[in-house]
């Protein structure tokens, strides 16, 4: 499991890095989305992997070692929602810049080549 997660995080992150280095705004936004998946998974993995042990404590007086780590989960939940807001903001800037500059290049103008 660890290896699968590690490789997957690597591939998704790499694809994201490739995309954010591209010149088109749409590529940038997709790159940021992929990177945020990878980073969220990475932060989540900081709590180690637990199968079938969700942090839901039905009774008091439990053994905390038998439950998944709730802290990274809470942080990632926040990150996911904030990620949505960032994507929305970026998207609006993207289409706004496209309308203003007439170009969907990340610099707002086509490169002179």
């Amino acid at each position: 499991m660890e290896l699968v997660i590690a490789i997957s995080v690597g591939i998704v992150f790499g694809a994201g890095v490739w995309l954010i280095l591209r010149p088109r705004t749409f590529q940038l936004i997709t790159g940021l989305m992929l990177m945020s998946y990878a980073v969220n998974l990475f932060i989540f993995a900081m709590g180690r992997l637990w199968v079938n042990q969700p942090p839901i404590t039905p009774v008091a007086g439990i053994d905390p070692t038998q439950f998944a780590d709730p802290l990274p989960q809470a942080l990632v939940l926040t990150a996911i929602v904030i990620g949505f807001a960032t994507t929305a903001l970026y998207l609006v800037i993207m289409i706004g810049a496209r309308g203003l500059t007439g170009s969907d290049h990340v610099d707002g103008e086509e490169p002179r080549e």
């Binding site: 660890e2 290896l3 590690a6 690597g10 790499g14 990475f42 180690r48």
Partner: peptide
């Protein structure tokens, strides 16, 4: 970048 991220994740997980 992908390799680094994968290596780091794996190192933490084990």
């Amino acid at each position: 970048g992908g390799l680094a991220m994968a290596a780091l994740t794996y190192a933490v997980l084990i």
